[in-house]
Nucleic acid binder design. Structure first.
Lengths: 273, 273
DNA sequence: AAACGCTGTTTCAAATATAAAACAGCTTGT
DNA sequence: ACAAGCTGTTTTATATTTGAAACAGCGTTT
């Protein structure tokens, strides 16, 4: 009786699942910005797990430092243990270290907040950020997830996928909308992506959110695959975004080069493979 | 047959432990900066868990997005799922949001890297960082753990503990040494802490690491307890650290005030309670 | 004040995950 | 070429975890 899909998932890897572990992790994922602290009964109801089992799982999570009791109430919040895990992850990804100085320079050159994001399934996840000094700063923080098909950043990464891969990511043809510009179907998305792929960048105003414009360009590694994307965001209307396309593309290609990508290698573009 | 203590642990909370969950989390904790990718057999040996069990646990972790297969090898590395968890944690802690601008200003005023850290058991954990622009920048990243008794930051936080609480944190009298200045015993540490508590700050050169000096001051919340500490680090000898004590203490007290701490409230100092 | 609902915690039979063993595939050495 | 060792994966009896039920404690309500 496996329930709703977790984060992402390699296709067909659900053969041997340890319920204790799976459910413990589901409990952790119940906590977020909106609901930073929760009690055991609440979680039991939400996940459909018996009270006594949730009780034991949460006690284990507390023992391991991933949950902590909030003061004298019987509620829990995320423990500091999860923080260490998260940052071991960041440290283990080469690209984040290399990206930092590049994003800083891009931020200084443009005056805009710049970000590096990677894709996880249907989501874009921000992993490095260089915040603009101006009052207008982006609200995204490291770890923020946004729908890939509805963001410029996501589009330049999705553009690398073959039709088959894209259908694997989006199993349903219908796509949730976030603005008038969000494509409604996978087919419509495909058309947009083909344009992005040809241009090698994407730029748009108010694509995901009203009043915010963005330019994004893809980052490739030695194999030629797109593994991340860089963007800047700006207040829509206030500037002509197009002016900065070159800067963003330059930053992305600088990073790609550091990751051993050689455009002239004769590596064929991924999509035509 | 419970094994070595995990991260931290509320005393005596090990009654109901779910083995599947505990071992899965132990597996995650095997991954760190030094060993970013590991195979199942290696982990099985290290944790003393049967191969077939580790196999299933890791498959579950992969399914949940906390581990991912590295390319075509049979090894795994941390997955992007842990990142989200870590940042939900940061977002859930009020103090980190408030600290950021204060650390930025402290960095600008002093030219040094400044940090906010909290204590988890015997460890100091860095949660916010404002990196100096100078070439000499600190090597600590968010999530870094250092031994509390051997760092200035840790000392100002430990100074808040009663004798009994301190003995609870350090069950053995002997303390590991990291430099000539590290106290060797809990009693010696207590003496140092009493001085720190009285001064309200701590400053030292080469206390944890050769060539690095640090000044730290405690951050209190509305209850008067020390919940975090702020520090700056500088190259030892190059500057007279003492010069910046006021700046650091000011930053710490600014943050305390934003956390509802009122020095004149008649709240008695914690240690004399 | 009794009854009700909601907890946190414990118990114990029943359902389940576990771990030894075995298999197949792959490298290594001799 | 063979054996020996290492893997990833699967099987299956056994040992364990699970979850319904029950207990005790609390606050409300009637």
């Amino acid at each position: 009786m496996t329930k709703a899909l977790p984060f992402s998932s390699s296709p067909g890897a659900e053969r041997y699942i340890v319920p204790g572990l799976q459910r413990g992790l589901q409990i952790l994922r119940c906590f977020d910005r909106q609901r930073p602290q929760l009690g055991a009964p609440e979680i039991a109801r939400e996940l459909g797990i018996p009270r006594s089992t949730v009780f034991r799982l949460m006690q284990t999570l507390e023992y391991m430092g991933l949950l902590e009791k909030v003061d004298h109430s019987s509620e829990y919040r995320l423990g500091i243990g999860v923080l260490s895990l998260g940052f071991e992850y960041l440290a283990s990804i080469e690209v984040t270290e290399l990206a930092r100085p590049i994003l800083d320079r891009l931020r200084d050159e443009t005056g805009f907040s710049s970000h590096l994001a990677i894709r996880d399934g249907q989501d874009v996840v921000f992993v490095v950020k260089a915040a603009a000094k101006a009052a207008f700063a982006s609200s995204v923080t490291i770890g923020t997830r946004l729908p890939a098909h509805a963001t410029i950043l996501g589009r330049v990464m999705l553009a690398d996928l073959t039709d088959e891969e894209l259908r694997n990511v989006y199993t349903s043809e219908e796509l949730p909308r976030y603005s008038e510009q969000t494509p409604e179907t996978v087919s419509a998305l495909r058309t947009i992506l083909d344009g992005d792929a040809e241009r090698g960048y994407a730029v748009s105003a108010a694509y995901f959110e009203h009043g915010i414009g963005s330019i994004a360009a893809p980052v490739r590694d030695g194999s030629g695959r797109i593994i991340a994307a860089i963007n800047v965001i700006f207040q829509d209307g206030k500037v002509d975004g197009e002016t900065y396309i070159d800067r963003v593309m330059q930053a992305a290609s600088d990073l790609s080069r550091q990751l051993n990508y050689h455009p002239a290698d004769g590596k064929q573009e991924r999509r035509s493979a």
